[in-house]
Design a binder for these strands. Structure first.
Length: 188
DNA sequence: GGCACGATTGCT
DNA sequence: GCAATCGTGCCT
């Protein structure tokens, strides 16, 4: 019985838009001691470059998103609204900031609670800032290859209306029809 | 040192 | 529709 291998750094070391789409259908695995929690990625968003007003990298390599400036294939986890955490996979080559926000997860194994929405995913998988900067590899948190997706939909990113024209870029991707997508319409 | 605000969520 | 809640960023 073949065991799925964690996705290698090369998977993440590409254009962020490509990684955001390639992550759809992959399996996010959270290992907590002997307990394994896993789900299928059904919704992502791409954040790339210091120019993107919606991207945390705009605060520079010394800011809270410093790990976005480092090598690909590590976790970028931040606290939002003082109470929720969001999980990202860092992309692009060292020195080039980029990350993919995980927004929707289809429960597969060991999941309790909802996993539609970035904050709920982190709550269900017990992901917080202690994992920020950690390589997306065993023993704590990683992605594995999954069944290929049949279709990909795209639309505006959620909650970044303050970013002006950057908010209009169709950099949100999801598997159409999935029940675990945080919002089905591409609008907002 | 002070203050406004957010890649969200859940309750009214 | 709006409060919760706190680290970060920016201004004084």
């Amino acid at each position: 019985m073949p065991v799925a291998a964690p996705l290698a750094r090369e998977f993440y070391e590409r254009e962020t838009l490509a990684v955001a789409q390639a992550l759809l259908g992959t399996i996010l695995v959270r290992q907590i001691g002997a307990e394994r929690r896993a789900g299928r990625v059904v919704e992502t968003e791409a954040y790339v470059g210091a120019d993107d007003l919606a991207c945390h990298a705009r605060t520079g390599p010394g800011g809270r998103a410093s790990v976005m400036y480092g090598p690909a294939g590590v976790a970028y986890v931040y606290l939002i609204y003082g109470m929720h955490h969001c999980l990202n996979a860092v992309t692009e080559r060292d020195g080039h900031p980029g990350a993919v926000l995980i927004r929707g997860l289809e429960p597969i194994e060991g999941i309790v609670g909802r996993t539609d929405g970035p904050g709920r995913i982190c709550k269900a998988l017990e992901i917080d800032r202690r994992l920020n900067g950690l390589p997306l590899a065993p023993p704590e948190l990683w992605f594995e290859a999954g069944r290929p997706v049949e279709a990909v939909a795209s639309g505006r990113r959620i909650g970044v209306d303050y970013a002006g024209e950057w908010a209009e870029r169709p950099w949100r991707f999801w598997i159409p029809g999935s029940r675990w997508v945080s919002r089905e319409p591409s609008r907002r």
